[in-house]
Design a protein around this nucleic acid. Structure first.
Lengths: 191, 191
DNA sequence: GTCCATGTAGACAAATCTGTCTACACTGGT
DNA sequence: ACCAGTGTAGACAGATTTGTCTACATGGAC
């Protein structure tokens, strides 16, 4: 539907190339550190083409966050399903799933937390996008817990522990220590 | 020792005014968003004076982090002491102490986590400063726990929960929810 | 008195960043 | 055949940023 005419090349449309390139560069180097010109050059697109698709850098940032949210939640639910234990509480899948992410060479923390830090005050909408993202993450975590009156409350506590593990893994080289500590925090919720 | 000649004015030295002004501006608006010219104007100092004290903006950033670390740890230990319960585990002081910080109108998360996000890749030394800071924070937390073989391990898990609560309070307006969730995570460590 | 550290005011260079604009080319639908 | 949409290349303006430099003032040490 959005594929270009030529079938064998499968080169994404200019719009998508821009979005994916920006996603990578923003995540890797930060948003403020990434100039528009670099995004344009890296995605192999002309400047005018860029500004035809995105009226401004800020608009691109918000579009990237939207894309990121969809991509991340898809990965997260999928990873949880893949690591779901045969028997035992589904919550046990959480640490192995996050381990995938943390150990990826490109891991640089949570894109939403990073964006809030960089642009939270300057770009309206970033804060809201982050809240929505974390809300959805918490809902996915809640799905791992047995139904009970305190399920939402427990899910929020666990989500906060996860965020702590994310930022720790971000500035410490060692992701294993963060994951072990997260496992410790999760233990009381595992029965 | 570093006071100016006039005793009644008590105006800090140019060096200190720059440092304190930069500390506030960097924390409030972010580092990349704060130009050197603003720091200079706001601290009431001439440009040359600034560059006599700090060879570059990067050097200023590192100096601010050092200052921040000292200031924050001092506040933290003091707040924990002030909230120490008469009877009951000292760890109970943690949530009330953090509540002070979170509810302060100028709260904008952890300066070190923010700086890592903004400059972690670009400025060598930032990552190390953050690790040192969190290491010291963890050590202070360990001081609240009863001596045991697992004290260090427990302190790390608690520190991660605290970081999670910090970032959550940063993007959610509601600090109370973060603190309640942190209390939930801490409960198993409270006996 | 003289010197030197420390300070102020502000012009200036050089780089960088966002966003606009001109001129031109290809392609699919009608 | 023609036209609208989408694309490319790259110059350009305007703002902003870091860091240097000139010229001058003040106050304490010796």
């Amino acid at each position: 539907m959005k594929q270009p005419a030529s079938l064998e090349s499968a080169r994404p449309s200019a719009h998508d190339r821009i979005l994916l390139t920006a996603h990578d560069l923003f995540y890797r180097h930060g948003i403020r550190a990434t100039g528009i010109d670099l995004v344009i050059a890296e995605s192999g697109v002309a400047k005018l083409t860029f500004y035809r698709h995105f009226p401004s850098k800020n608009a691109l940032v918000l579009a990237v966050l939207e894309h990121r949210h969809q991509r991340w939640v898809t990965w997260f639910t999928d990873a949880l399903a893949r690591h779901r234990p045969r028997n035992g509480p589904p919550l046990e899948a959480l640490v192995p799933a996050l381990a995938e992410w943390f150990h990826d060479g490109n891991f640089r923390g949570c894109a939403f937390l990073n964006t809030v830090t960089e642009m939270g005050g300057a770009l309206p909408g970033v804060m809201a996008a982050c809240r929505l993202h974390k809300q959805d993450m918490t809902a996915v975590i809640a799905g791992l817990l047995p139904a009970s009156r305190q399920r939402k409350r427990q899910a929020l506590a666990i989500a906060i522990a996860v965020d702590g593990a994310i930022v720790h893994a971000q500035f410490e080289g060692d992701a294993k220590a963060s994951l072990k500590a997260l496992g410790d925090l999760l233990r009381p919720y595992l029965e």
